[in-house]
Design a binder for these strands. Structure first.
Length: 563
RNA sequence: GUCCGCGUGGCGCAAUUGGAGAGCGCGUUGCUCUGCGAAGGCAAAGGUUGCGAGUUCGAAUCUCGCCGCGGACGCCA
């Protein structure tokens, strides 16, 4: 990490040196962007600065590159600097410097990969937040995997992170759910009740109704129906939330805070925000309902924020989802003061996104502090056939079932392996049948393999802490160290781009490079002549294990010592 | 119809402010353990990055048009 900015400074210094020497004309030298070349033959790092400077410097890019290379300051970390067409400066790190980093990595151990950001931010990652009216399906699992991994990454990047689940427990939700439960409850007590048209179908509500019947007997049949439905709805939501929590924990997804939507109304916060919007002329009455004038803010259409009494009788059920959203965004940014509020939403909610941004701007909040991430859906397939998932019809494979069949590590790893922008086709048959070939096992195997090597070393009495890393000169050793050194950069990329998928891809690559090293370099050797190199390699293997473990930890995947 | 996402070897996916010769896994073919885990390693075959134009020294990446797939467009949440 530091090396990267160090190299940027060196490149800049090279440009200044060249100018002072009259080899380059005078012009302001911008900060050099240091990148990773695609091929290792092109060095460890490179900059395309000459290509960008060509116009201003009025020189051919390659010539600038050569000039920069010639005036490059001496540095212990840098072994060689070369110009390459069409205008790159390739920088090669010295083997000695690379080898020496192993001690640095080992010293940092579990903290290796954590960054010190220019500015430490207070960030909230709000994710999953599904309606607590039934079990989780696979799509919400993707939400949790993305959200939690991202939170871990941001934390590793040096920020203060809070993970939050927003519980949709407002009036409407409780009643709708409650009515379905009431009917199922009454039915299982032998009553002939008609199921509501918009009710929550599916086996889940039936089971819950039955459980209520067993637990409470006829208690709720004796009170007014509406009251009973509400009460059952409330208990039901609590129960579902507890189940969601348990399911999520199986995937190592945990929250710091469970935030109640209802609380936004009960605390009076919504009323405040409502007044604020009203005073800005962004609310108006039409057909008995209150509308949010989104078109005033450049959006396509207005939206109802308070429903009309003629449609919804109970006052506390009239606020729409938008009402909660406007109060919530104010709560996050203005009340709780998060520097950044990150939302993780499924693609089906992308239409709500512009409204949240618009409301935030209208309320005078800095929209830059709000980031709504939209991830695409998960298609569940079985032997190539699409399995339809729908809560309404109750036909879906639950996340718990998937976890049972495929295993938490594999599920979580697969759900974050793809860019959030692309749809995941999750084939159950493939996931189950090929579980041994799943990349997660490849990574875990590498970790377990190293653990086994370390155990073996301990048995034969070789300690790694005395290893002299300067002995690490074999190409496979250096290759492995280089791969490990990329880890902090992966964290940085994933954190700045808010893209968790870089992590699993990196882990696979690191595992592969370790395997190659292991094939070429004998680690544990009891030959007296090998004692020194054996200790050094053990230390390197330990660094690789630590890095794999750190990466797996951020992904919420176990790093087993044996498998 | 409008808006959002996607389209990359047979399949599933990557590709760091637009960079050099587009990588990885699965699958296929061949090779590789009588010393530390073969769930491993090495090698080979396989691509006009959906199609067409444009911007640029340079495009999988940006712009426009078309085609295909998914999603969103409620006084639902």
């Amino acid at each position: 990490m530091k090396i990267k900015s160090q190299l940027a400074d060196l490149v800049k210094q090279a440009a200044l040196n060249a100018q002072n020497a009259g080899a380059l004309p005078a012009f302001a030298v911008s900060d050099a962007f240091i990148e990773r070349p695609q091929k290792k033959e092109w060095g460890d790092y490179a900059t395309s600065l000459p290509l960008k400077l060509a116009r201003e410097a009025k020189r051919a890019p390659l010539q600038i590159a050569q000039t920069l290379a010639a005036h490059f300051p001496r540095d212990d970390a840098v072994a060689k600097v070369e110009a390459a067409p069409p205008g790159f400066v390739n920088i090669y790190l010295s083997d000695a410097w690379i080898a020496a980093q192993v001690d640095v990595i080992v010293a940092q151990s579990a903290r290796f990969g954590t960054l010190e950001p220019a500015r430490r931010e207070k960030i909230q990652v709000e994710h999953v937040s599904i309606n607590p009216t039934g079990p989780m399906h696979v799509g919400s699992g993707r939400n949790g995997a993305i959200g939690d991994t991202l939170a871990n990454i941001l934390q590793a990047a040096g920020h203060e992170v809070q993970r939050e689940f927003y519980i949709n427990d407002n009036g409407t939700q409780v009643r709708h759910f409650g009515e379905s439960l009431y009917v199922r409850y009454a039915q299982s007590l032998g009553r002939d009740e008609e199921f509501p048209e918009d009710g929550y179908q599916g086996a889940y509500a039936v089971e819950l109704g039955k459980a209520y019947a067993e637990q409470y007997g006829e208690k709720y049949l004796q009170m007014p129906r509406e009251q009973a439905a509400r009460a059952l709805g409330r208990i039901g939501i609590e129960r579902v939330v507890a189940e969601l929590r348990a399911t999520l924990e199986r995937m190592n997804v945990r929250f710091d805070n469970w935030f109640s939507e209802r609380s936004l109304f009960e605390s009076g916060l919504f009323a405040q925000v409502f007044d604020a919007l009203k005073s800005k002329g962004l609310l108006y009455e039409k057909e008995d309902a209150t509308w949010f004038a989104a078109t005033e803010l450049g959006l396509e259409k207005d939206a109802v924020i308070i429903r009309s009494p003629s449609i919804i009788a109970e006052p506390d059920e009239r606020p729409t989802y938008l009402a909660g959203d406007v109060a919530y965004v104010w709560n996050k940014v203005a009340v709780r003061g998060f520097d950044r509020a990150i939302y993780v939403w499924g693609a089906d909610h992308h239409g709500d996104m512009p409204r949240v941004y618009a409301v935030a701007r209208a309320l005078g909040l800095d929209a830059e502090r709000i980031k709504i991430l939209i991830y695409q859906f998960v298609n569940l397939k079985s032997g190539g056939e699409l399995v339809k998932m729908s809560k309404r019809t109750g036909e879906f494979v639950t996340l718990d079932e998937l976890l049972d069949e495929v295993g938490a590590d594999a599920v979580r790893f697969m759900l974050i392996s793809q860019s959030i922008n692309s749809t995941i086709d999750f084939d159950l048959e493939v996931a189950k049948a090929q579980s041994d070939l799943n990349p997660v096992y490849y990574v875990q195997y590498a970790h377990a393999r190293i653990a086994s090597i370390l155990r073996h070393a301990a048995e034969v009495g070789i300690a790694s802490d005395a290893g002299d890393v300067a002995l690490l000169r074999h190409p496979a050793e250096l290759e492995l160290i280089r791969a490990i050194l990329r880890y902090p950069e992966i964290i940085e990329i994933a954190a700045t781009k808010l893209e968790p998928h870089h992590l699993p891809h990196y882990a696979i690559e690191l595992a592969g490079i370790f395997h190659a090293f292991y094939k070429q370099c004998r680690v544990v050797s009891t030959e007296p002549a090998d004692a020194a190199i054996s200790r050094a390699r053990l230390k390197l293997a330990g660094a690789a294990k630590q890095t794999l473990a750190n990466a797996l930890a951020l992904m919420g995947v176990r790093a087993p010592d044996a498998m």
